[in-house]
Design a protein around this nucleic acid. Structure first.
Lengths: 207, 207
DNA sequence: CGCTCTCTCTATCTTAAGAGGGAGCGAGGC
DNA sequence: GCCTCGCTCCCTCTTAAGATAGAGAGAGCG
């Protein structure tokens, strides 16, 4: 038999870490070698242990999942990272996958799916949950927002007026309106409030 | 030594249930007797096992935490329920506590806090996390919304216009405006979009 | 019975939002 | 060089939103 698959866990909830650790360590072919509670720790522990797989929560204190994926793959292009998150609408997921994360998993997945996802990723095979695969296809058809539009959207979501947005971004109110209009068109919304609702549903913003 | 504290877990994430179960069963003085994956199951398993403590996630499929608390306490007024949730801003928490839940806990709490909370609740002592206690005091000072206002707020959050809201609630646009104005005043917001942001932060609505 | 609260409706007025245009300019790709 | 895209700015016009103020009906309460 080969050596065990070495796993590093990163999640800010001790309960989730315990759950994952219990599941993994019960298996004969894998073991948890370290647990991180935030993004910085996750990177540090990857460096230290060089695991076969890193299971990573998207939302964490200090440094979110996206930037952890970015950093780790920058240092170790061959790293096998399995993303784990609560919401299947998050835009972040696609950012991670396109940056090179090997797999993606919902937190409400059953034990068997979680374990088989870890095994798949450890063998460098991509694992994509079926619900996400479907969402990914849907997303392709939809227009994406530019960085500036995302900046404006964030402020809109905070309830700022066009005038206020203009002041904060050092542009004119007219330009702010132009961006807002583009956002409304791309998100297919009639009002800014609806745009916020749509954006939140798609995981473009986190309130 | 007394008999062990009998615990029923209710959470829709298998990972979290595993984690809690592992933590609890490691203790000499407590044990998990059943696990539920949704609200209905939680109620059924309470009936079946009559545990000393039920640990309950607020957000679950089929029936949410609030209504589970309501139903269980209706059948068993002495039930000891410990609420567990991810977000500390949720309005629901206060509803649960005022309905008679014995304790409240954040999911990112460390092991020791979780275990001591279960012990406290099992002895019929209330357990209140310090962050929540503070929030509760803050909340007292703030004006509460009427049911009608919450109805309107929900529609506002979905991006509906005043006219649309009026149609859906079978009232005039003027009345819808009156409600929206009241909402803005109570939430201390300038625009409806800001009101949605504030309401979401306070857990008055779930997008 | 008054008092308060909620919900309903009315009216007027000001301002912000959104629709529909056009246009310049720099960066990057073909 | 040409073209596209992102960002910026400008114009007009219509409508929705919000501020302000008043008022009546019904429920619940001391």
């Amino acid at each position: 038999m080969k050596t065990k698959v070495r796993v590093v866990l990163a999640d800010d909830h001790p309960v989730v870490r315990d759950g994952l650790a219990a599941m993994v360590n019960q298996q004969a072919d894998m073991e948890v070698v370290a647990e991180a509670g935030d993004g910085d720790e996750a990177i540090a522990l990857y460096e230290q242990h060089r695991p076969d797989v890193m299971v990573l929560d998207l939302r964490m204190p200090k440094r979110d999942g996206v930037s952890v994926v970015q950093r780790v793959l920058e240092l170790h292009p061959k790293a096998c990272i399995l993303i784990m998150t609560t919401y299947d609408g998050d835009e972040d997921i696609f950012q991670c996958l396109s940056q090179g994360a090997k797999g993606y998993l919902l937190k409400d997945a059953p034990r068997q799916e979680i374990l088989s996802a870890i095994r798949a990723v450890s063998e460098d095979r991509p694992y994509t949950s079926s619900t996400v695969a479907a969402k990914a296809l849907q997303r392709m058809a939809k227009p994406s927002l530019t960085q500036r539009e995302l900046d404006v959207l964030q402020l809109v979501a905070e309830g700022r007026s066009n005038k206020d947005i203009a002041r904060r971004l050092s542009i004119t109110e007219g330009t702010a309106k132009t961006h807002v209009k583009a956002i409304l068109t791309k998100l297919d919304a009639i009002s800014r409030t609806e745009a916020v609702a749509v954006a939140h549903k798609r995981g473009l913003i986190h309130l």
